[in-house]
């Protein structure tokens, strides 16, 4: 072999894979965090419902807490269940 790779120092960024552009609750892009946070990423994670809708975790938790009688997805009105991927 004339040339061979010995080592490689790679750099990548990570983003959420969301089905939508924006969070359906706060309307912020998923590139950004929820209005309560200042930095997107680990500190303001996304969560998915069994219905496959996706929100900022802080937003959906706040939403569910404000709806004591019915735990529904604000987008499709199905019963909300966290999808543990």
């Amino acid at each position: 072999m004339k040339v061979k790779i010995k080592s490689w120092m790679g750099v990548a960024t990570w983003r959420w894979i969301a089905n939508d552009e924006n969070c359906g609750i706060c309307r912020m892009s998923f590139e950004n965090c929820c209005p309560e946070c200042s930095l997107p990423g680990d500190d303001c994670p996304l969560v998915w419902g069994a219905c496959s809708h996706c929100f900022h975790m802080h937003c959906i938790v706040k939403w569910l807490n404000s709806q004591p009688n019915s735990q529904q997805c604000p987008m499709c009105r199905q019963n909300w269940k966290f999808n543990i991927q």
Binding site: K6, M9, W14
Partner: peptide
């Protein structure tokens, strides 16, 4: 290959 990867959080 001796790999060394840095994974960065996009917004930061």
């Amino acid at each position: 290959i001796n790999l060394s990867i840095k994974v960065l959080q996009a917004g930061a």
